[in-house]
Design a protein around this nucleic acid. Sequence first.
DNA 1: CATACAATGAACCACATGGTTCAGTTTCAG
DNA 2: CTGAAACTGAACCATGTGGTTCATTGTATG
Lengths: 124, 124
Amino acid sequence: MNHMVQFQSPRLDAAFAALSHATRRGILERLGRTDASITELAGRFDMTLTGMKKHIAILEEAGFVVTRKAGRVRTCALGPRGLEHEAAWIERYRQLWQARFDALDTLVADLQQTPSTPSRPTRK
Amino acid sequence: MNHMVQFQSPRLDAAFAALSHATRRGILERLGRTDASITELAGRFDMTLTGMKKHIAILEEAGFVVTRKAGRVRTCALGPRGLEHEAAWIERYRQLWQARFDALDTLVADLQQTPSTPSRPTRK
DNA sequence: CATACAATGAACCACATGGTTCAGTTTCAG
DNA sequence: CTGAAACTGAACCATGTGGTTCATTGTATG
């Protein structure tokens, strides 16, 4: 009945939501250099430990970060998941976008080429 | 004082936030096929006109969608902005991720190659 | 003209987010 | 043993989000 493409994806939801906050993108940037503790990150981004912990939890939930606790310090690192999934989604849409505007260009070109045609895009 | 890289970007904030909701991704998918009115979209995604209007507003704010009103119907279409900006950001991070894990691989390889290293990767 | 139809704005609601403080718990250092 | 450091959890707060209903405004159309 309906050929609804699968657009539901809690995974993508969480991933994009995680990336939608500047501080969190900053954390990824920081962890790209070296691993870091909660205290270290909280210091760099000027917020409380508790606040930073929440951001880390969100990034961990999205799969971007993994943590392990050694002694009393929890160390945060980039997770193995990477951004392949999100990159793939975006790439698909970039192509869709492209196709859409290519079609428009073709239409415009056709109209200009045969200004007397009623309303058919008439592909050659 | 601090060499904080620019990670602030209201634009990316809005873009990723817009993409973080399944319905909104679905709308983009739908508009990739053809333009559509608010009523049409509201029908397809089973919500009120007002609700759909809000999603469209968010997508428009993020620059993904443009609308124009002809008579009493507002038509929504994919915007010219595309996803280049977001794709670029993600690509940068994919590379960062890659580099990070390549470094890990190298480290592991080194450790395996010279099992007599001072710092003990293998105990006993 | 009368009426229906598309969209809009305002107001409301439950719940999530992004932060805080405060009160613990473990763990480390002396 | 004492105390500080690092984290954690609970509770709180302001604001934003995702939806609704209801009333209104334009715009077609019979």
